[in-house]
């Protein structure tokens, strides 16, 4: 099926997210604007105005009521999805690189940037899911990362842990109740920035993408690396598909880093790997610049990618995608069916 092109942003996309029902896509860009789109036809549903700088991150709560954003204007903001009303602004000394709700939507974390005089931190706020409620000014937790700044972070299952990816390629596991560092391990190559961290649906494992050209799946409780996906390009994003056992990786060398030729135009690709066998099974090209983020439809019906080229491309999977199985998977399914 032909992809739908969402053109409305004027600058590079930084993050894209589906809402839990998968009918709406939220996108943020360096152009300061948050957009909401209908995923089935690409029609723009609305925009959220107020940020005064490039936006780095967006997340929607599990009831599709609240939207969180963060950016270079050193604010994290909370919006009402339906009305576009700005509900809350939290100010920080540095920019917000990542926001993420917990699975129950009762907590929101923000990753703050490191800058002279300020270490990178992870802050957590308690969230009242009622859009009429007054949200708290004070964080309930603040984790200061003294060794290597965090670039991405999220809540594990039951919000037991906060897992963070760092600039130095390591991954940390914190106790999400008291912020204590439980474990830190070098998941990616040393000093290769971790660019993305996305969860499996039940948040027991997650995938990290790195500039070291690999993506890895690790277990949330043990931090054991379970799978490694090797590519030939620095990665900006990695997503786990529900329904099918695939992962989707996005990245690419920025134009300034490669000799641009007309032959390269439109050849930035989303790469599909088999999640369990770690083999590449396909590529989808189309973007005119690196893919900065890939997000999967929560019911596994499609995916979308946000590019450095300023476009969001939305793909709906066709039958062949769902039918694809390795022989050993087919046999196993048969075996389980016969039990």
């Amino acid at each position: 099926m032909r992809p739908i092109l969402l053109s409305g942003h004027e600058r590079a996309l930084t993050q894209v997210k589906y809402n839990p029902d998968g009918d709406i896509i939220f996108s943020v860009s360096k152009d300061h604007v948050v957009c909401a789109w209908f995923s089935h036809n690409g029609e723009r549903l609305g925009t959220y105005h107020g940020h005064q700088g490039a936006l780095w991150t967006v997340d929607v709560d599990p009831t599709s009521t609240l939207l969180a954003t963060g950016g270079a204007d050193n604010t994290m903001r909370l919006w009402e999805v339906k009305t576009g009303k700005l509900l809350k602004t939290w100010d920080f000394p540095t920019s917000i690189k990542r926001v993420e709700f917990s699975a129950d939507g009762r907590q929101l974390l923000g990753v703050t940037e490191k800058r002279s005089g300020h270490l990178g931190t992870i802050v957590v706020y308690e969230i009242d899911p009622d859009p009429e409620a007054k949200q708290s000014d004070e964080h309930i937790l603040r984790i200061v990362c003294e060794d290597s700044k965090p670039t991405v972070a999220g809540f594990s299952y039951l919000a037991h842990y906060i897992i963070a990816g760092h600039e130095d390629g390591s991954v940390s596991q914190f106790d999400a109740k008291n912020g204590e560092l439980l474990y830190n391990t070098q998941v990616h190559e040393t000093d290769m920035l971790i660019t993305d961290l996305q969860w499996s649906q039940d948040r027991t494992y997650f995938i990290t993408a790195s500039k070291d050209k690999t993506a890895k799946i690790s277990a949330a409780d043990s931090l054991e690396v379970l799978k490694t996906y090797v590519t030939d390009t620095p990665l900006n994003s990695a997503a786990i598909t529900p329904v099918k056992d695939f992962v989707i990786l996005g990245g690419g060398q920025a134009a300034m880093d490669v000799t641009t030729t007309s032959a390269r135009q439109g050849k930035f690709e989303a790469r599909f790997y088999h999640k369990i066998f770690c083999e590449e099974i396909g590529r989808v090209r189309g973007h005119f610049g690196p893919l900065n983020y890939v997000a999967v439809h929560p019911q596994g019906l499609g995916y979308c990618s946000g590019g450095e080229d300023g476009y969001v491309r939305v793909h709906h999977f066709d039958k062949g995608y769902f039918d694809f199985l390795y022989e050993v998977e087919r046999e196993k399914a048969q075996e389980l069916a016969n039990l």
Binding site: G105, Q201, P298
Partner: peptide, 14 residues
């Protein structure tokens, strides 16, 4: 652990 949301594929039961 009685992780209701997690066992429901991350979806909240409304």
């Amino acid at each position: 652990e009685d992780a209701v949301i997690e066992l429901n594929n991350g979806k909240i039961l409304r």
